[in-house]
Design a protein around this nucleic acid. Structure first.
Lengths: 107, 107
DNA sequence: CGGTATCCGTGTTGATACTG
DNA sequence: CAGTATCAACACGGATACCG
């Protein structure tokens, strides 16, 4: 039987879909590098646990990069990788389509 | 708080992601109109319940069209709507990207 | 043929409390 | 500041049996 990875597209969609994920990517795409706290404030309503999960997942997928500075207080920031930026283009198209279908009240 | 529909893109991705969904769309895109049984045979391993769920969901989203003929035996076929076909283009791009990232052993 | 109905295991999401 | 740990709630996938 096929399994989840049969089509690479399914694997990719599996990574970028799911609650919050796209929103996080969108915000990183439009804002550039952000610290954990800033990100959490912009993705209003997300819990630290879920944000952490998403960031780890995206990092492992090579879509975002985590930059850690061992200071006091600790400073950690995230940004899209070059690979991650490749998503912008097709995603923007899908977004345009989604906006056309479902309205643009929320951008 | 935001909710699932905050970004239209999330709503769209929510609809087309999830196990089997993309695969179903892919098959309808490449094969054209198909009957329930044919579809089920092509999406090897899927249960009737899940296939039905996905088809209902996609139908409600306006992505596929259900054509019912009250014969004996009953004949029901599915195909992409014009709206559904709009997905092909951006999806194809994402697919190219996914293939480049994750390999093309499986097409 | 083309589905429904039911049930259940598992994964995902999330709130809350706590830590280096 | 940037998380980890824990536990509860729920959505999702899938097997099986039955129906018009």
């Amino acid at each position: 039987m096929a399994g989840l990875e049969y089509v690479p597209l399914e694997k990719l969609l599996h990574q970028i879909s799911g609650r919050w994920t796209m929103y996080i990517l969108w915000i990183l795409d439009t804002n550039g590098k952000l610290r954990f706290g800033e990100l959490k404030r912009k993705v209003e309503g997300i819990s630290t646990k879920v944000l952490t999960e998403r960031l780890r997942m995206l990092e492992q997928a090579g879509i975002i990069h985590r930059h850690y500075e061992a200071e006091i207080p600790p400073k950690v920031s995230y940004e899209l990788t070059e690979q991650g930026k490749e998503l912008s283009e097709p995603l923007y198209q899908l977004c345009e389509l989604a906006t056309r279908w479902y309205g643009d009240e929320h951008n």
